[in-house]
Design a protein around this nucleic acid. Structure first.
Ligand SMILES: NC(=O)c1ccc[n+]([C@@H]2O[C@H](COP(=O)([O-])OP(=O)(O)OC[C@H]3O[C@@H](n4cnc5c(N)ncnc54)[C@H](O)[C@@H]3O)[C@@H](O)[C@H]2O)c1
Ligand SMILES: NC(=O)c1ccc[n+]([C@@H]2O[C@H](COP(=O)([O-])OP(=O)(O)OC[C@H]3O[C@@H](n4cnc5c(N)ncnc54)[C@H](O)[C@@H]3O)[C@@H](O)[C@H]2O)c1
Lengths: 209, 209
DNA sequence: GAGAATTTGTGAATAATTTCGCAAATTCAG
DNA sequence: CTGAATTTGCGAAATTATTCACAAATTCTC
């Protein structure tokens, strides 16, 4: 890799990838940057520029063969093999995530679930046994899990995240509202905070009144 | 408003707002763009530029009085009053959201919950009664709810979203993995898709191996 | 109270991102 | 087979976003 691909480009690839998968599921065989762009509200030029960072995947006059482009994106995103994931915190949200059947078909297998509560440890979510948070480091190391979804109460978020780093986790999807402070070269952080997203909306909704 | 504030600036305001609230809860009285920036991994200059779009809220030598800046951001984000929210789809995720006690303190009251399932309609989540999706339009209009969180199965997402628009909803937080096609001047859309966020991570995690 | 230290707000410079525009390749219509 | 229509990939231009750098205001130190 000569110059690193801009992160903003990388952030759009999963969107292209999933839209192409939907098109394929609907029986479509080829598409164009124009069609994809209209579906996503993005300019055709942007899609072509983004893809051109990684190679030449299309054909003039025809556009893109969906199955081929999906395969290419799968490799680029390292989704040509599946990933094991740990869920930390088996409360309302952690349970919903662990029950959700939409991750596995996309290549994310929930392998480990942890909690502190003695009422939960040892019980099952589906066929997953809830493990003691004290076993976090050895279990994650042993299983070689690299990705965690953090669904503990806000007050515990930073401490648990620090443990995750010690356990060798490389990616954390943070569902708490705490902005985590972690070494940036070691862990890839992504924040999913519905309150921020709602406040982003209320800025505009309020204005229109 | 002369020139509209760039959306990327607006998107950072909720992050500032929430961090300031945490600082205040910890008993802190003033802060500076430097301190806030270090906490968030953002440059001090960026924070000052962002805030300067809305006015002059700080003082040379001192920085910002946290309570004052919180009040200003509250007004800017239209969070000086609370907002009613509807949850559409009372499944795993919809239930977790409806049970979650973190929205109300932030000014978002879950007022209405809808589902199609006869097994769920009429039952309660906490003290919320699950309503029939057939009543969506009249109920939302009557309650004057402007914001919806969409947690129905992917296959139903677009159809339900179209109904929400007819009901006069102005903001949709989309938890499904379907990219919705809606009139952009009418509805403010925000997408929360964990699979995309995980794939954004796997791009980088794979590379480091 | 004088001088050092902080810190803001902002114009200018720099950097990043998006859009434009077009040659080249390909397909389509008749 | 010919001319019109599509569509890509990409360099260049335009736009947008971030950082720099500094005067001015304020506080802190002794
Ligand atoms: N429920 C939602 O819809 C929702 C939405 C957005 C964000 N969140 C965020 O997700 C987080 C969890 O929310 P929730 O509603 O599931 O809360 P919850 O209280 O239902 O669940 C938290 C779980 O974490 C466990 N826990 C506590 N400390 C722990 C530790 N140190 N290690 C491991 N497990 C620990 C608790 O025993 C509990 O089971 C919160 O930070 C919340 O802000 C939740
Ligand atoms: N569970 C998760 O952790 C999770 C995570 C990310 C995304 N999602 C997304 O959230 C959505 C819901 O997931 P879930 O796990 O809660 O699924 P679920 O099947 O548990 O719940 C969906 C609910 O929607 C109801 N429903 C179906 N059609 C409806 C309609 N037309 N109108 C109103 N209600 C209707 C169903 O009766 C069900 O109660 C899915 O699109 C999924 O991709 C879920």
């Amino acid at each position: 890799m000569q110059t690193p691909i801009p992160d903003i480009v990388v952030s759009r690839l999963p969107v292209y990838f999933q839209t192409l998968q939907t098109m394929q599921a609907e029986g479509q065989h080829t598409t164009s940057s124009k069609e994809l762009g209209e579906k996503l509200g993005i300019s055709a030029a942007q899609i072509r520029k983004d893809l051109s960072q990684f190679g030449e995947f299309g054909k003039q006059g025809t556009g893109y063969i969906i199955s081929f482009l999906i395969d290419q994106l799968k490799t680029i995103l390292n989704m040509d093999h599946s990933w094991d994931v740990a869920v930390i915190g088996a409360g309302n949200l952690g349970k919903a995530i662990a029950h959700y059947h939409g991750f596995a078909p996309q290549g994310f297998n929930i392998k480990l679930v942890f909690d502190t509560s003695p009422d939960l440890i040892g019980t099952n979510i589906g066929d997953l046994n809830i493990l003691d948070i004290d076993e976090l480091i050895p279990c994650i190391k042993k299983a070689g899990v690299k990705i965690a979804m953090l669904t503990v109460p806000d007050a515990a978020a930073q401490a648990v995240a620090d443990e995750l780093v010690k356990a060798g986790i490389e990616g954390i999807l943070n569902y708490t509202s705490t902005p985590l402070n972690l070494p940036p070269r070691v862990v890839h952080l992504r924040h999913s905070d519905p309150v921020s997203q709602l406040q982003h909306m209320t800025y505009y909704i309020g204005k229109s009144k």
